[in-house]
Simulated scan of single mutants.
Amino acid sequence: MLPRLQDSPQERARALYLTGETTIIACRHDPRFSFMLYIPESAWDEPERELDLLISVHGTMRLQSLYRDAFSGFGRFNNCVILAPLFPVGVRGDMEAGGYKYMVEHEIRYDEVLLAMVAQAGDLINRTFGKFMLFGFSGGGHFTHRFLYLHPDRLKAVSIGAPGSVTLLDDTMDWWPGIRNFRNIFGRDIDFEALKQVRVHMSVGALDTEEWEITFPEDSPKYIAGANSAGKNRNDRLHALRETLQARGVEVWHDTAPGVPHDMRGVFPYVERFFTDTLKNRLPAPGVR
């Protein structure tokens, strides 16, 4: 949407910076973090029309714009705002790259940072987002399924892409391999009834079988008992995650992309179809495909 000569300064700014693919915006809750948006023109032209929100969370390489731009067409044709957060490496000055994947990094609660971004995005376009959709791949897949445990009441649908490590709903292991001390860490229990109301999708490439990056040796400072218990590679671990959710009554749609290695673009068609079908309310039966 281009500004017009008769537009007010506010309307010009909206047309240039808050329509379509936006620039990077600092999170007012904690400016160490930021986000970018895709805002369809209909958000302004049709203020009474229902507007959905889809959040797309980057992997370890932090390719934030890729994760936003991949969904821009989806956002345009489905009247959906796309929010892509940025959780930088080393926000505490220590070059730590994995903090956001596990929800807690010292004083930082990454789930709360994301919810603050959601509120801020709503304020920017005069909307309130209650339930939203959430996608993440690789490091973002870590974040996505753990956010699901914390806030199922805020999620309409979630797509979990090829996480390197998973948290099983196992109360014999501590966080993060299991959930035995979940309440001690987060101050709440998992709401399993709310969890069962969320549409859950998983995707992984059939050739996503490398182990070197996701195996925790016992002498590693990041090692914790149970770290490798869910399987050797991402296919194994996603399978274990699906089983632990299904055991709690959660329906899961699980796609394995033939011929695809660890590549978000390879599984994206399955992810886009899942969210499209979610909004059109015509999902096929859950299960493994």
Rank of each mutant, 00 (worst) to 15 (best):
V113N: 13
L115C: 11
A116C: 06
A119P: 01
Q120S: 03
A121K: 03
G122F: 12
G122P: 06
G122I: 07
D123G: 07
D123F: 08
D123K: 06
L124I: 14
N126H: 08
R127A: 10
T128R: 10
T128E: 11
T128C: 12
F129P: 10
F129G: 06
G130T: 15
K131W: 14
F132G: 00
M133E: 12
M133T: 10
M133Y: 14
L134E: 01
F135L: 11
F137D: 02
G139I: 14
G139S: 15
G140L: 06
G140T: 04
G141C: 14
H142K: 09
H142F: 12
F143G: 10
T144Y: 07
T144W: 11
T144A: 05
H145I: 05
H145L: 10
R146F: 12
L148E: 07
L148R: 07
L148I: 13
Y149D: 04
L150D: 15
L150M: 15
H151Y: 13
P152Q: 11
P152H: 09
P152A: 12
D153Y: 11
D153M: 09
D153P: 03
D153F: 13
L155D: 00
K156I: 08
A157S: 03
I160Q: 02
I160P: 01
I160R: 01
A162Q: 04
A162I: 01
G164Q: 00
S165F: 05
S165Y: 05
T167S: 09
L168F: 13
L169A: 08
L169V: 12
L169N: 04
D170L: 08
D171W: 06
M173D: 11
W175F: 13
W175N: 06
W175G: 04
P177R: 15
R180I: 12
R180F: 14
